[in-house]
Simulated assay, not measured.
Amino acid sequence: MPLDHAADPSTEAEPFLDALADLCDHYDATAESSYVTLPDPASKVHYLTAGEGPPLLLLHGLGSTAHVWVPLFDALTDRFTVYAPDRPGRGLSTAVDYHETGFREFGVEYVADFLDALGIEETAVMGNSLGGFQSLALAVDRPERVRRLCIVGAPAGLSRSIPHLFRLFDLPVVGDLLFDLFAVETVADARRQYRRINVEDDSALPDAYFEPGVVAEGLPGQRESLRSLMETLGSFRGMAPEFDLRGDLDSVEVPARFVWGTDDYFWEPEVGRPAVERMGDAELVELRDHGHMPWLEPGDDAERAAVEFLTE
């Protein structure tokens, strides 16, 4: 069975779990779908786990779920036990109103609680986009929990500038209309959105990759939670000051690698270079013609850059 999952009494979970099973089947990945109960407001967090070896925590980006990491499972699970949680408000995790919790502190707090619940004291961490921000913030706030740090794709936290399209989400009325316009209802919708923001070339991605994300949009609380998070991240003027980590990175001493595409939609690699230079043991790997989620592009350049570093 490619996906083994704990019983879930909610009928809403079934299509999502079926889509995850199809995705694991496509990539010949054997994974387990599980839940852990954390202090409120995180409450119930759903996660995928697979493999054997030391722990590796995988943190996804803003609008995705843990399913985005499944294409890497084959390369990782011979070396690590991977843990990929759905961020609260995404996938099958409990929906959270980020107007009430914020994200800078909560994004670290629930991850630390998640590791505590699983009995993990220290772990390698890999994050993308907003998950990259979480990874860096975890290394700043809880350095004892992070053994090695790999950021794939531009992380939030290294610039307050954001693309003009995302600034529009903060405008009254216009932001709500745009948010609804970007709703993903079909695999074709998801592919178009990925080509616009996440990848330069989607030809390596099967339809099965997009199905969990499409199904997840219909899960209770998903859209509302995502909208609340987007409204706390920034404004028309740019990302909120509390999401600027640049002044804190001098304290990060764990080995770190940034795997960054030259065609990243959000920030080019040069944006990250000053941060890399401020950290004690960090390096930047640039991948030409790769986008914001570089491991999903054709070829294995991003996969190789990440796995070689994590296994050093």
Score class of each variant (00 low, 15 high):
residue 170 D to Q: 12
residue 197 I to C: 09
residue 241 P to M: 09
residue 253 E to K: 00
residue 254 V to A: 06
residue 107 G to R: 07
residue 200 E to W: 00
residue 172 P to T: 04
residue 112 A to E: 15
residue 221 G to E: 11
residue 277 E to M: 09
residue 299 G to N: 11
residue 178 L to S: 07
residue 279 M to G: 00
residue 176 D to R: 13
residue 102 G to E: 13
residue 227 R to H: 11
residue 264 D to N: 08
residue 254 V to Q: 08
residue 168 L to A: 09
residue 282 A to S: 02
residue 255 P to R: 01
residue 196 R to V: 03
residue 227 R to D: 04
residue 89 G to E: 08
residue 184 V to R: 02
residue 310 L to P: 04
residue 216 A to R: 06
residue 261 G to N: 01
residue 297 E to G: 04
residue 295 W to L: 00
residue 36 V to S: 03
residue 90 R to M: 13
residue 143 P to W: 02
residue 276 V to W: 05
residue 128 N to D: 10
residue 247 G to Q: 05
residue 76 L to K: 06
residue 72 L to K: 13
residue 5 H to M: 03
residue 4 D to H: 13
residue 290 H to P: 04
residue 198 N to T: 15
residue 102 G to L: 07
residue 272 G to A: 13
residue 73 F to I: 04
residue 217 E to A: 14
residue 60 H to E: 12
residue 148 R to K: 15
residue 103 F to R: 14
residue 157 G to P: 12
residue 100 E to T: 12
residue 223 R to Q: 14
residue 251 S to C: 03
residue 151 I to R: 04
residue 180 D to H: 09
residue 269 P to D: 05
residue 133 F to D: 04
residue 290 H to N: 08
residue 172 P to A: 05
residue 277 E to G: 04
residue 122 E to W: 09
residue 222 Q to S: 14
residue 148 R to H: 13
residue 252 V to P: 12
residue 229 L to S: 04
residue 283 E to D: 15
residue 93 S to Q: 06
residue 56 L to V: 01
residue 186 T to H: 11
residue 274 P to T: 01
residue 38 L to N: 02
residue 271 V to A: 14
residue 17 L to W: 01
residue 95 A to N: 06
residue 239 M to G: 09
residue 109 E to W: 00
residue 193 Q to Y: 09
residue 239 M to I: 15
residue 237 R to Y: 15
residue 178 L to N: 03
residue 85 P to N: 05
residue 88 P to R: 02
residue 173 V to K: 10
residue 159 S to A: 15
residue 91 G to Y: 01
residue 211 E to Q: 14
residue 165 L to V: 14
residue 157 G to K: 11
residue 126 M to F: 07
residue 136 L to F: 11
residue 171 L to Q: 12
residue 205 L to A: 07
residue 244 D to A: 03
residue 295 W to S: 00
residue 302 A to Y: 12
residue 79 R to N: 09
residue 27 Y to A: 02
residue 93 S to K: 03
residue 125 V to A: 06
residue 301 D to I: 12
residue 268 E to K: 15
residue 152 V to C: 01
residue 263 D to P: 00
residue 95 A to T: 07
residue 200 E to Y: 00
residue 130 L to S: 15
residue 308 E to V: 10
residue 174 V to W: 00
residue 198 N to P: 15
residue 230 M to A: 13
residue 126 M to G: 12
residue 268 E to L: 06
residue 224 E to Q: 14
residue 3 L to K: 04
residue 106 F to W: 07
residue 301 D to T: 07
residue 288 R to L: 14
residue 79 R to M: 08
residue 66 A to M: 07
residue 247 G to P: 12
residue 304 R to F: 00
residue 129 S to T: 10
residue 208 A to W: 01
residue 250 D to K: 11
residue 1 M to Y: 03
residue 238 G to P: 00
residue 159 S to E: 14
residue 234 G to Q: 04
residue 310 L to G: 06
residue 253 E to Y: 00
residue 249 L to K: 13
residue 3 L to G: 03
